[in-house]
Structure formats: C-alpha cells, structure tokens
C-alpha cells in the first residue's frame, strides 16, 4: 500500500527516515518516514493528537528527533535551530502567521530583508521597490491591493495566509511547510489559499500541507501521508485512493461506520 518510490533521478528535497520523538513517557512520533519532493504537495493528514505538529516541528528544526535521520537533498542533516532549517530553504508558515498586524503590507513582506538603495549614511529602505514587488507578488496570487501601506490587519484571513506563503516563496523557499493554513478560513478563503498552494507547486516548490480537512487536501495533494497516534499508517499517491477512503482511514474509519449505523437506527 505505501508508496515510497521517489521521483526518478532526484533525491527528495527533504526526507525523514524512521524518526521517533519522545516527550518524557509520551511517544509523540514512532518510527515515521516521509519524503517531500519538489513540485509536489505532500499532505500530512491526521486527527488531533496524531503527531502532525510534532512532525512539522522536526521538519522545521524546532525539535531534534530522538531517533531516525533527516535528509536534505539526500544528505543527512541535523538542524540545530529553525534558523538553520530556513538557511537550507525550508520555510514554515505557522497558523498564527508571523506577521505584524499594524504594519503595512509591503513593510511586512520585506521585514528583516528590506531592499536598500543609496550608500553610506544615506542608505535607505527602498520603499518603492518593496511596494512594487509586493504588489506584483500579490497580483500573482489574485489579491489586488491598491495601497501596499495599509496594515496587514485589514486583509482577510485567507489573504493574510497567502501573503505569508508568497513571502516565503519569494525569498526562495524550496520546501514550504504550511501548518493548517485553511483551518480558520471559510470555503472561499480556503480556496484562495489552496489555489496559491497549487501555484507554488508549479514553481517547483515542495509543499508540506498539514491539515485535518481531507476536502481541502484532496484537490491539491499529490501524496497523502496518514498519521495516527504518532504512527505512520500509510502513504498514498493521488489516484490510488478516493477522498472517501481517505476520510475513512483518517477518522479511524470503523469508528465512524459504527457511529453512522448507530445513529441510523434511531
């Protein structure tokens, strides 16, 4: 059932092999393996408490695995900190966005990596360029902003999430880890984000999409990694499995069937 065949001729951008992570007596991850390929969306699916958060924290350098190895471009690597992961081109967009709400859109977009012009004491933040790039990047994802100085807080949740992703892609992320990017969004807003995830994939980015919503994952996903109680319960390629099957497996299928049968009786 599990598909571990890599794309021919290329090592996965990011891979973990037999990773385990313990917090005291709690086994958060138990012998989990997964691969992230460029130009693919790998969906990490699981119910609450399945170990999704721990897994992405291992991938993004927050946690070091207690067992198992992590490979970047096929080379064994240890991330000492999230910064190191970022240096390897692995960007994580957390649910709480990491944006400054009252700061303007273009100032947020370039925060920490501001373009400069002029020299010596007259070196200054190249605001026109920042505005232009921000406007262009946002137009690419279908957000038309006339004033790039307006606070990020004025954008909708889906737009904010998209801007955060656009920023990571613009600054050269090879692997993009998205933590529940659609969970707080309505259907339409989620559509904006999912469409943009598909665009990032077309650019060759390896996307890891963490979600517990199969209906969001299915349209954009290329492979689906299932987690349950910290264990890896299967990896499926798109076409190998239907959305219903996936949902059943994810929700601990039998339990749902039983529930349905039980409720039907009443």
């Amino acid at each position: 059932m599990a598909d571990r065949t890599p794309v021919p001729g290329a090592a996965p951008l990011l891979e973990i092999r037999n990773v385990s992570k313990y917090f005291g007596s709690v086994i958060a991850l138990d012998d989990v393996s997964m691969q992230v390929h460029g130009g693919e969306v790998t969906c990490l699916l699981g119910d609450n408490g399945a170990g999704k958060s721990t897994l992405i924290k291992v991938l993004s350098g927050v946690h070091r695995p207690d067992r198992g190895t992590l490979l970047v471009d096929g080379n064994e690597t240890v991330f000492g900190s999230p910064r190191e992961a970022i240096e390897y081109g692995i960007a994580t967009v957390y649910q709480d966005l990491a944006m400054i709400p009252l700061l303007g859109i273009s100032r947020n977009f370039f925060l920490g990596r501001e373009p400069v012009s002029g020299r010596g004491p007259f070196r200054r933040f190249d605001k026109p360029r920042a505005d232009r790039v921000t406007r262009d990047e946002l137009r690419k994802i279908g957000i038309g902003v006339r004033d790039t100085a307006q606070p990020v807080a004025t954008l909708s949740g889906g737009e904010r999430q998209s801007v955060a992703i656009a920023r990571a892609v613009y600054f050269g992320a090879k692997v993009l880890i998205l933590d529940e990017p659609t969970s707080a969004l309505g259907v339409r807003e989620a559509g904006i984000v999912l469409r943009y995830i598909a665009q990032a994939r077309e650019r060759g980015v390896g996307v890891v999409l963490i979600t517990h919503n199969v209906h969001h994952a299915f349209p954009v996903g290329d492979r689906f990694v299932l987690l349950e109680h910290g264990r890896h319960t299967g990896t499926y390629r798109k076409g190998e499995i239907s959305v219903t099957e996936l949902e059943t497996k994810m929700a601990g299928g039998e339990a749902l069937d039983e529930l349905r049968a039980e409720l039907d009786r009443d």
Partner: peptide, 27 residues
C-alpha cells in the same frame, strides 16, 4: 527619516509589533 526610510526603522516597527514574529524573520 530613520523610522520611515531606513531598514532600522522597519525593524523598530517589527520589534514593537510582535517581537517573536520579527525575530523569526531575522530582525
């Protein structure tokens, strides 16, 4: 000038707006 026109100015806004977020992006 420093606040509105320099990188340092943007960092000032970032540090005050959300210190963790600012640090995460390298400020």
């Amino acid at each position: 000038w420093v606040l509105q026109r320099t990188r340092f100015g943007n960092w000032i806004f970032g540090a005050g707006g959300d210190v963790t977020a600012a640090r995460n992006v390298g400020v």
